[in-house]
Design a protein around this nucleic acid. Structure first.
Lengths: 196, 196
DNA sequence: TCATTAACGCATTTTATTTGCTTTAGTGGC
DNA sequence: GCCACTAAAGCAAATAAAATGCGTTAATGA
């Protein structure tokens, strides 16, 4: 093995392909910001990116797949969760930012986009990002000698309910709701289920 | 107000429109069963339904919207949850059937379909179906003098995690996992979080 | 039965997608 | 550094899907 053939996002990552990919991704973001969903078409993206449509069709196959890839790229965490000194505050800060990103209109659109692909690869990758972030906080807490809940538990009891609300209800969840879900996992009996 | 203009699924529900809608919906289901995703195109559906494509475009706008509508129709519960005599067994039986339907390949496809529409109406309706079913079991339990958890809690702690798994992971949740989630809400401390 | 009009069908136009072939430019061997 | 190789891009033509104008059909309510 002469070279690390791992982390290649696609074959032949060198110069041109990478430039085209970057240009197309950027074009999608620009059009998503400017125009409405109707104008977000492959030919329009091609023009914006300075590329021929057939290039996009051959590399991504469908608009859905392209949007899914772009969404995944933007859902990728840019930095590790901040270290605030304790498990509880680490999680609170991270969750607040997570919710803000995900529950916003662009965030909801990204989540919907990442789900619309044929193979479940991107969606699963998206969940893996979240898991890794939580796991990072978890590991740091362990080093401090704290007893953090497993990342799986946080995914199940905090992230999943928030995602459900984001995907299936007209009104996205609030920061208070996220906080309540987190507190319940962290065994703060102060906040309990509120009924209507 | 001369007539209840409510529950109309679309304007002019009478004869022909209803027939066209039924034919188109049936055509979608037939093609989904037979052919692959690539052949599921508006013109193909139109042929199968014995209708012109423009009819479909005018009524549904896009293929996504049509698929979303069809999915919602098939996610609509056909019957009220069975009465097995107790809250616990009612929920267990219902959840088992729910998971079987949702975690199957066609079920996952339906969920993805129902989510791909511009307005969040269908997705929210889908969640409302589930809520209503759980609420039905809840009401029955109250009549028996039991103390059932609110439907919201079941949505949050059982349905949401299952949906998360269905949407975001390659392997759908198992019946055992569903059972565990339910048991935790029903306060059976026998099953606890299992770590890898 | 009749007037009204929403919704459908048909034909045409516009737009998107696919495909065959050519050209460009990364990649690895020398 | 030069060269052969080939993945990926460009271009143009062909095919397929989506949108649209207009005439026709059939629900609807009087």
């Amino acid at each position: 093995m002469k070279k690390a053939a791992a982390d290649r996002t696609g074959p032949r990552p060198g110069g041109r392909s990478a430039r085209v990919q970057a240009a197309v991704h950027r074009a999608v973001l620009e059009l998503q910001a400017d125009a409405g969903e109707a104008e977000l078409t492959v030919p329009a993206i091609a023009v914006q990116a300075g590329v021929t449509p057939s290039t996009i069709y051959r590399r991504w196959g469908t608009l859905s797949q392209l949007l899914s890839d772009v969404a995944l790229e933007n859902l990728r965490p840019e930095k590790a969760p901040e270290d605030t000194g304790s498990l509880e505050s680490d999680l609170r800060l991270w969750l607040e930012q997570y919710l803000e990103e995900m529950a916003s209109a662009p965030g909801r659109a990204m989540i919907r986009d990442v789900l619309r692909e044929t193979l479940p690869g991107n969606a699963s990758q998206c969940s893996a990002f979240t898991y890794a972030q939580i796991e990072h906080i978890h590991a740091r807490a362990l080093e401090r000698g704290e007893t953090p809940p497993p990342a799986e538990v946080l995914l199940e009891r905090v992230i999943a309910p928030l995602m459900y609300r984001i995907l299936f209800t007209p009104t996205p969840p609030t920061a208070e709701e996220a906080r309540r879900l987190l507190d319940e996992v962290l065994k703060k009996p102060a906040t309990v289920y509120q009924q209507k």
